[in-house]
Design a protein around this nucleic acid. Structure first.
Length: 532
RNA sequence: GCGCCUGUGGUUCAAUGGAUAGAACAUUGGCCUCCGAAGCCAAAGAUUACUGGUUCGAGUCCAGUCAGGCGCACCA
């Protein structure tokens, strides 16, 4: 990757300057190389001179000039020009030869372009959606669903081995389901109350129907779970590797009981007011919490600890939980439990903020009519829905305007991206043998061609950054940027022309673009149509 | 009251502490005899809630204020 190469170059040069005592000895911190928005600032830029100015006791400009001349001496084929600008930025300009050569690289690697090794084959567990089997998936679940699925794709691309996991809160045997939540309000009711539908103004018609058909709580739950699973696999097109049942995989295997004994044996549990409390406050949480009620029944917390113990035992290097905002208070408890259990890997708990339907929920609450995720997908389609969700950062609340979404589905940015793909395919259909001759890549000199190549080679960097910071919204943005540069190229350069060599070179360019565009869409779970 | 998240053009959202805060939608105008106009080009629109602080540099970090959301169970 080009960024890595530049960073290595800078480190090397700083060390040389230190040896020559032009720069004093200091620890080289992280070298920050960025992709400036302004073209005049080069393809890459670093602020390293500004950062080390203080410790080096020299002016940033002086340091930058020193670094520049040292790097220039190396005569790298990758760089065409290096500039030092005002406060002390060093701007790098990539050479045409390097850029042209990258097309060859993309065509060679095909869909493996952007595949990284930073995951080193480490095992990652991603748990997401995990909707209670007491109703259909709603708009809020869409966030976790698409975010989790896409993040898993990106981590795989970055070289991790991922497991997509869904936790089913279906404990009915030992525990009994006490809470039925519809998608609007969570209300607690005893089991017998649940099964007198006439008295339940809170529950959706959907749930009432299920209750009147199946009568018993465990049957209602397994029926709903089955429907949700079906919906997720077939309509959301998300394939989970693992469906973990609280009832079957934890309670029936005595894992909840075992973890309680283990915690007890470690002296982490005490009795107060007839209940058993876990000393979470000693492990970083704000207070202690009950794990066994006065009645002797375990709480959700205990079974969730058992679940996490199970995950830890399965040997994951990294565990990512994607929870809704209403579970925020649960984070401290599970983190505390992870410490108690001595989990050595990363435990990242991501909270997705609430999805709010514009115009409020008035009618839905009373009538039990809610906007389900299925309604949304029926209205706008899976591609639009996925894109819509992915463009927003997890920790901002999102306001969902269904009317607007429907209206905009016609002119949605997803079509803009897909159109670029379809356009490429359309051009390729006009060529008899769309195999590209990579011998004429040096003919790619037009600013629009070079700009497009520069965007293409950002792809691995997008994967790297996103696999580190989980800022998924970077991906749809990249897709839009790439499509824009393609459309501009299309405006400026005719692919099929009388000039056979140039045609070959441009075919190679659009083939490379197609590969990266398709891959970007694949990562987001969005289709890349050949015709629209 | 305490904890977490958020406050950016009319709207929905971006912006690893960097250079002139970007898109999309909406608004206004221009571009199809030529590889797909679901496209391209342009205009207009922002005191980044407010007040201080940190530094070469703050939408971003820190403190405080205001506003909104979520959580604070022997519910899950």
């Amino acid at each position: 990757m080009i960024r890595e190469e530049i960073i290595k170059l800078i480190i090397k040069v700083i060390k040389e300057l230190q040896k020559e005592e032009i720069l004093p000895d200091f620890e080289i911190l992280e070298i920050h190389v960025e992709h400036p928005e302004e073209k005049a600032h080069g393809d890459w830029a670093t602020n390293i001179a500004l950062q080390i100015a203080k410790t080096a006791k020299k002016s940033p400009m002086e340091i930058a000039e020193n670094l520049k001349s040292q790097i220039s001496n190396l005569k790298s084929k990758v760089l065409e020009k290096i500039e030092v600008v005002k406060p002390g930025f060093i701007n790098f300009f990539l050479s045409k030869e390097y850029l042209q050569g990258q097309i060859k690289e993309i065509l060679k690697q095909k869909e493996k372009f952007g595949q990284l090794k930073i995951g080193k084959g480490q095992k990652v567990n991603l748990e997401f959606i995990s909707a209670n089997p007491t109703g259909q998936l709603h708009l809020g679940h869409g966030r976790g669903a698409f975010f989790g699925d896409t993040l898993a794709n990106i981590l795989e691309k970055a070289g991790f081995k991922t497991t997509r996991e869904y936790y089913i809160n279906d404990a009915v045997g030992g525990l009994q389901i006490r809470t039925i939540s519809d998608t609007v309000t969570t209300v607690s009711r005893l089991p017998e109350v649940i099964f007198t539908p006439g008295e339940l103004p809170y529950y959706s018609d959907y749930l009432k129907d299920k209750i009147s058909i199946f009568k018993s709580s465990d049957k209602v739950i397994s029926a709903i779970q089955e429907e949700n699973k079906n919906f997720i696999e077939n309509k959301l097109k998300i394939k989970f590797n693992n469906w973990v049942s609280e009832e079957k995989d934890l309670y029936q295997k005595n894992k909840v009981e075992k973890i309680q004994k283990w915690l007890d044996g470690k002296g982490l549990v005490y009795e107060k007011e007839g209940a058993k409390w876990l000393k979470t406050s000693e492990y970083g949480d704000i207070k202690d919490w009950v794990i066994v009620r006065e009645t002797g029944e375990p709480t959700y917390l205990l079974s969730d600890i058992a679940y996490h113990k199970d995950k830890f035992d399965r040997g994951f290097d990294k565990i990512i939980n994607i929870w809704g905002a209403d579970h925020q208070g649960h984070v401290g408890k599970i983190k505390a439990a992870a410490k108690m259990l001595g989990f050595k890997g990363d435990l990242d708990i991501l909270i997705s903020q609430i999805v709010r339907l514009k115009g409020g929920l008035k009618l839905s609450k009373r009538k039990g009519e809610i906007i389900t995720l299925e309604n949304l997908i029926d209205e706008v389609g899976l591609d639009v829905a996925r894109f819509l969700y992915l463009t927003k950062s997890l920790n901002t609340q999102m306001e969902f305007d269904l009317e607007l979404a429907k209206e905009q589905s016609e002119k949605n940015p997803v079509y803009y991206v897909q159109y670029a793909h379809a356009r490429i395919c359309s051009i390729l259909r006009k060529v008899k043998h769309p195999t590209s001759n990579i011998k004429h890549l040096t003919l790619l000199n037009h600013p629009s061609e070079l700009a497009l190549i520069k965007e293409l080679i950002r792809f691995p960097e997008i994967i790297e950054d996103t696999s580190r910071d989980y800022q998924i919204q970077r991906l749809p943005q990249y897709a839009i940027d790439l499509a824009t540069l393609f459309h501009q190229f299309y405006r400026d350069c005719r692919v099929i022309s009388g000039d056979k060599n140039l045609t070959q070179a441009r075919l190679a360019l659009i083939l490379a673009t197609k590969i990266v565009l398709k891959d970007t869409l694949d990562l987001m779970g969005i289709s890349a149509p050949k015709k629209m």
